[in-house]
Each structure stands twice: as structure tokens, then as C-alpha cells.
Nucleic acid binder design. Structure first.
Ligand code: FES
Ligand code: FES
Lengths: 140, 140
DNA sequence: AAGAATAAAGACTAATTTGTCTTAAAATAA
DNA sequence: TTATTTTAAGACAAATTAGTCTTTATTCTT
């Protein structure tokens, strides 16, 4: 819905890897089993993350992938951008390609605060803090 | 991004119609010109809104479409649902088909407040109040 | 009654996304 | 070295979405 299937698979895979207590090397076959995603398709999706440095891949026996950066250095927005080529920063509710306020669509004023929170969520959520609910954050 | 092109076209068309001072009958050809959307494609999209009663269509010379209900009776969520068949109420950030809290994905806790605001936005925004910014609403 | 304007409907095409299959390349294990 | 395990890469197929084209039915105008 918000992003493509490919994006969703990427996010789920990255979270799975972040959940490994050590930054272990996990074969994509295992990821595909655990997350119930087609192995060959997942391989292609994760290649895009490897290209951008968010994953490191190892060929051969005992090979697989592991996080390429510290968990707090990888945001959901990074993942979305790597896989789908655009971020969640300027999404217009009516499909305007640039929701920048210069050429606002009729929904712009009302949509903007929602859009802002959405963009912040993707940018500020990373593989370290994704477990912390935003409500907890407000309580503290 | 959030919805399909068809959805975006539907929302833009409905807002255009709501902006007519009277609830005039507007030919789809005019909508397609003003909004720069393919005429034949737009015709098919708007047919779905006519089926659900959100539009009334008139064939023949001087024909066209007009709103089928009072503007405040038509929410963005109604439009999305009519055209794409699903609403914005339970959207999981990782593609989980039912984001209901029973089978939460790893992002659920953190995502939920955002999801709530998003759902409320689509449900509470209608063709009458879409111009009112949510910031204004808070100030009052 | 005849012609023009308009939505409806259905078959078709094009583009994009999703997914499969096969082969190659690299690394480990025996 | 040879076999096995794994990612990489590219061609292909299937599904979904977007868009076109043509015909029909309806309504207004003259
Ligand atoms: S231009 Fe549409 S929401 Fe900003
Ligand atoms: S199940 Fe994924 S956000 Fe609720």
C-alpha cells in the first residue's frame, strides 16, 4: 500500500537481521523461509540493499547476508529509498509529483501535518529503535 | 503511492465537482481537460463512483456527472473504498493483511499511532471540510 | 425525425510489478 | 581437486494496473 511488495520484503528482512543478537550472517534461503517470501525474488530485492551498503553479502558455503551498518544507522526511509528509489518525505495525497507547497493541490493544507508525521516516522525509525513505541516516547 | 492512480484521479475529480458553486452537471470531457487525465480512463474510474451512488451521471447532450450526495456525506475514505475496494483503516507498515493487534508485525507498536492518524484523516476529511487545515482546527 | 453530444460497456494494448528459471561465479568443505 | 553451498545475473513468464479504441444507448437540440 504505502510501498511496493519489494519494499515490504526489504523492511521485514532487515528487521529480522537486526533481531539476530549477533550481527550474524544469515543465508537468504533462511530469510525466505522464516518470512515466507519467494527465495529468488527476495534475492533480487536484497541485492539492491547490498549495492547501497545496507547489507554485506557473502557467497559460497556458510555465506549469506548481514547488516552493512550499525542498526541505528539504517532507517526505514533508507530502506524504502534503496529499493523503490523514492523516500517518504513529500507524498501528495492526490498524486502531485512535488508536494512542496509551491504548487499545492487542493488537499495540501489539510494533508501536510499528516504527511509530516509520516515522513518523520520513516526517517526517525531505524533498526535500533523500531521496537520503542512512539507513545512510550511521549510518556518519558 | 498511497492509493492507485485511479484513486487519485477519483479524489481529484470529486474535489473539482465539489468546488463548483452549484452542484452542476459537468461532462467528463471537461473534467479530463481540467485535471489533465485521459478521458476514456477517467470515464471508467468515475463509473465506479456512479455505481456506489457518489456520483449521478446523465447521458446525452448536456449530460455529465454531478455529486450524488451532499459534500459532507462523501469522505476521502468512501472514494478510496469505492475505487480500490479497501479503506485506509488498517494499513500495516510491512504489508500484514490484518493490522489488528492480534498478529502484530514487528513495527506494529510504533506504527499504530501514525496509522490511526492516517485512518482518521481519510475518514474525517470530506468534500465539505477538505479546505480546512487541521492546524486551524487545533487552534480553534 | 435527424443529428449531435454524452455516458456505458467491452475488447484490446501497454506498462509496471511480481515472480520464476537457469546459469555463472565465488567460497567452503571433504 | 571435487563437490556443495551460496549469492549474482539475466532472460523469461505471470499478474496487476493503466490506458486505448470502438460500439452502443441515451438524451438533447434543431
Ligand atoms: S501537493 Fe498534494 S498534498 Fe501537497
Ligand atoms: S501488523 Fe504491521 S503495523 Fe500492525
Amino acid at each position: 500500500m504505502f510501498c511496493s511488495k519489494a519494499c515490504e520484503y526489504a523492511i521485514r528482512s532487515m528487521i529480522f537481521l537486526a533481531d539476530q543478537s549477533q550481527n550474524d550472517i544469515v543465508p537468504i534461503s533462511k530469510l525466505s523461509q522464516e518470512l515466507e517470501i519467494s527465495f529468488t525474488f527476495l534475492t533480487k530485492v536484497l541485492q539492491q540493499l547490498t549495492e547501497k551498503g545496507y547489507l554485506i553479502s557473502y557467497k559460497g558455503a556458510k555465506g549469506g547476508v548481514c547488516l552493512g551498518k550499525a542498526p541505528e544507522e539504517i532507517s526505514l526511509d533508507d530502506i524504502v529509498q534503496a529499493v523503490s528509489g523514492h523516500n517518504m518525505k513529500s507524498i501528495c495525497a492526490t498524486g502531485n509529483p512535488d508536494c512542496d507547497g509551491l504548487h499545492p493541490c487542493p488537499l495540501h493544507d489539510r494533508w501536510q501535518p499528516i504527511q509530516k508525521m509520516l515522513g518523520d516516522f520513516y526517517k526517525e525509525t531505524n533498526l535500533e529503535n523500531y521496537k520503542v513505541s512512539l507513545i512510550d516516547k511521549l510518556i518519558k
